[in-house]
Amino acid sequence: MASKGNSYLPRKLHSLLGVIPLGLFIIEHAVANYTAFEGGQEGFSKSINFLNSIPLVFWVELFVIWLPILFHGVYGLYIAYQSNVNTGRFSYGRNWAFTAQRITGVITFIFVAWHFYETRVQIMLGNVTHEELGQHMNNILSDPLTVTAYVIGVIAATFHFSNGLWAFLVSWGITIGPRAQKVSSNICMVIFVIVSALFLLSIFAFRGDEFASAAASALTSLSVG
């Protein structure tokens, strides 16, 4: 019996959405971007073509990415507002992680909104095509200030996901004892390092000459095609 103004279900939903689908999405995004590092312009184009070949891709994006992010982000801001910062008095590792979870959540919210506007919204407006995305990222990331912002945004997002996965396992009663929570914490930190590395490598790949020059040829071939 859910009573009026019950925070149990929304908080539970917030925790679930952070892992499924958003955690899966962030891994998918990291792997897709990594193809820019591994396969250059060609590899990245392949990934984009593959993603665009998903049936009902717009609805998948809407229900699996956009709406979950909107709920998770807005409700998450409310959760952050409800929390105190007391790491000064209690400087334990987990308390730092608690505070970092809220700070990185807010950073990620701002970063994702900005990144979504710069990429997906520009595609919807017709200013950029899917084929031009590699070059578009090269343009965006040519500014050192933007690169710094992207590196901070990406690390914040992956920390928030990895630490959130740890908290999800506790909040759903999967890891109960201190030993289980210690092991899951180590696993989550490994996930943090790996996913961060994938994103950072792709950022540096997009900055490379290949995307700058390939962009020019891609642009001409596309305008013909």
Partner: peptide
């Protein structure tokens, strides 16, 4: 409302 879900795992 205000039950167990308020825990933020700061430990």
């Amino acid at each position: 409302e205000g039950g167990i879900e308020g825990c933020g795992n700061s430990q």
